[in-house]
Amino acid sequence: MYLLERVRTFRSRRMDSGTEEKIVEKLLFIAALSSTLIVFFIIAFMFKEGIPALALGWDFFFGMIWRPSHNQYGIVPLVVCTFIVGIGALVIAAVIGIPAAIFLAEYAPAWLRNIIKPCVELLVGIPSIVLGFFGLIVIVTYIRDSFGGYGECILAGWIILAIMTLPHVISISEDSIRAVPKGYKEGSLALGATQLQTIKKVILPNARSGILAAMVLGMGNAIGETMAVLMVIGNPEIPFIPSSILDPVRVLTSTIVIEIPYAVWGSLHQQALFALGVVLFIVVAILNLITTAVVRKGAMR
């Protein structure tokens, strides 16, 4: 009797859990699908708002003057400045970051590595607004005092963005150097090559795709970065293509943040700012696709 009872409850429970199973699976599926929907919505809404400005075509993409008060929305100076600031910062970050990664992966004794590595990891996500404020108070003042000018300039942007991208560059490069199989290195050393020769001829060529991916990803971060850059580059009223690294500049992200509070809702100005967002989105998406391609190619080899 007791056994029969057990069997019956077990069966009914199993039936219940069967429907429960199905419901849970559906719910989980909906959750997974909604993250897709968010991206879809982002793309749809950005384009919808930006299209009237994007439709300006030549005047938008190749226009040399960005002056909303005169209804001129040419993005060339903004895009050029964005790339100047992004590439310069990345070069500085690479010159310091890659050697640092090599040192951490190949030379550093364990105790030193155990200090440096967590520091670098902690600082990957340091709030950019704080870095921007530091740049405004320390770096901008220093440049103004020693080189003249306003101090808020490309050089200040380079330094602050380099500090921001450095931890990314170091940790990804170090990971890819460490991923080179030990046998390669030991083989080279056994043939009588010095450690330096081994690093130059064996390890770096093998870690190349990882380091390259770190660079492209760093570039995407640098271009998409907003607050830290905004606070140190000056943002002149009418953006122009700079002739020296002490010139103030305006980038895509800073233009959006500065002008959106003043843009009349529904005006071409506001639509042009959303179109800047679309351009930014596309540039960063292309850089991310390149990263994925580089990583995949490296993995295939």
């Binding site: 997974a32 699908l33 993250s35 897709t36 968010i38 991206v39 879809f40 919505f41 982002i42 809404f45 950005m46 708002e49 995407g220 271009i223 998409g224 970065e225 907003t226 992200t253 959006i256 943040v257 959106i260 700012l273 959303f274 967002g277 930014l280 989105f281 960063v284 998406a285 991310n288 994925t292």
Partner: peptide
Amino acid sequence: RTVRFFVECLAGIPSIVIGLFGLIF
């Protein structure tokens, strides 16, 4: 594969674009 691709996409979107989307949506 689509879901995973879009999640990766979302990770790469600059925060200012997410801010703009939040504002409009």
